[in-house]
């Protein structure tokens, strides 16, 4: 059992024993290799199921609900930023949530691991900076860095920004990485090429809404795509409807998205939905110098303004 899992279990058990919380929301081992599942521990005995490894890609903020009463939640850096957004948006009260912060070294991407292993992985273990991937035929060692999800590889806030307890000392924060090389690459294309690029990239989308369901920010009781009066965006896989959905979702998340990557990890079709949310993230940073989920003192970027926001594009 890894050290993180051990600490999470101990902290969770203590919280439940003392009655500080009614529930601990964490991860447990998934049914399949390289997966985890969200898990609600309600008794100290349950806490033995709690688990942590490089496959905790979900953002548990998605499952936080007011009705849970006082709850503890296991959260990575990006997840804590999201919880912070939730607090500013009245989703949950700070005093109702105990944040078990996890200084995060990054989550891996299953697709990359499978490709690297050259077959179905039976199980995978983390050993220092390396991952040991076991397939039916062999066992290979790969530097974990090569398997990281893009958002983890580019992560600027691996440590929880808001927490009540930490499962380990903060991890080093990387600096100097180029977060938006791919975005700039698309920016440089002609309009037609951009259109064609995304036409291809989004062609696989089946509108299953796994991305929306995984996203903690998509908590609207009725999503705009499901509105019927007026129903202005079709529900099928018409490319214009698909594009409308992803663009508007990105706008809705702009200034709030913390790049947890849950949307893309959840996508069964490998649609690069984060290209749009990251374009928005870049815009929010470039134009207004803001990053989502770093302070409880201000509302997200679209809910505020500065008198001298740049406006060179306005005639």
């Amino acid at each position: 059992m890894n050290r993180y899992t051990e600490t999470i279990q101990t902290l969770a058990a203590k919280l439940l024993e003392t009655g500080d919380v009614k529930t601990v929301l964490g991860f447990k081992r998934g049914t399949f290799p390289l997966t985890t599942e969200p898990f609600l521990a309600t008794t100290p005995a349950d806490t033995g199921e709690l688990y942590w490894d490089v496959n905790c890609r979900l953002n548990l903020a998605t499952y936080l609900k007011k009705e849970m009463g006082k709850v503890a939640v296991v959260a990575k850096g990006c997840d804590t930023r999201n919880i912070l957004v939730h607090i500013t948006e009245n989703r949950i009260k700070r005093e109702d949530v105990v944040i078990i912060g996890v200084p995060c070294t990054g989550m891996i991407e299953v697709k990359k691991a499978t490709e690297m292993a050259g077959g179905d992985i039976l199980y995978a273990t983390e050993q220092g900076e390396e991952m040991i991937l076991t397939t039916a035929g062999e066992e290979i060692r790969v530097p974990k860095a090569q398997l990281l999800r893009q958002n983890c590889a580019l992560c600027a806030h691996p440590n929880p920004v808001i927490y009540d307890m930490l499962v380990a000392d903060p991890v080093p924060v990387q600096t100097g990485m180029d977060r938006y090389a791919d975005i700039r690459e698309i920016d440089a294309k002609t309009s037609d090429a951009k259109w064609a690029f995304f036409d291809e990239a989004f062609s696989a989308c089946t509108r299953c809404y796994a991305c929306r369901n995984a996203c903690p920010l998509c908590y609207c009781p009725t999503c705009f795509v499901d509105e019927s009066r007026p129903q202005w965006v079709g529900k099928g896989t018409d490319p214009v409807d698909v594009r409308t959905y992803h663009m508007l979702r990105a706008i809705h998340c702009a200034g709030r998205c913390t790049e947890c990557g849950a949307c893309e990890s959840a996508c069964p079709m490998d649609v690069p939905v984060r290209l749009l949310t990251r374009k928005m993230e870049k815009t929010v940073g470039d134009r207004w110098g803001l990053e989502a989920g770093l302070t409880l003192d201000a509302r997200p970027a679209q809910d505020i303004f500065c008198l001298d926001d740049p406006e060179e594009f306005i005639l």
């Binding site: 948006e89 009245n90 989703r91 609207c220």
Partner: peptide, 8 residues
């Protein structure tokens, strides 16, 4: 029925 209470 549609309000999420986000406070925007």
């Amino acid at each position: 029925a549609l309000c999420s209470g986000c406070g925007v």
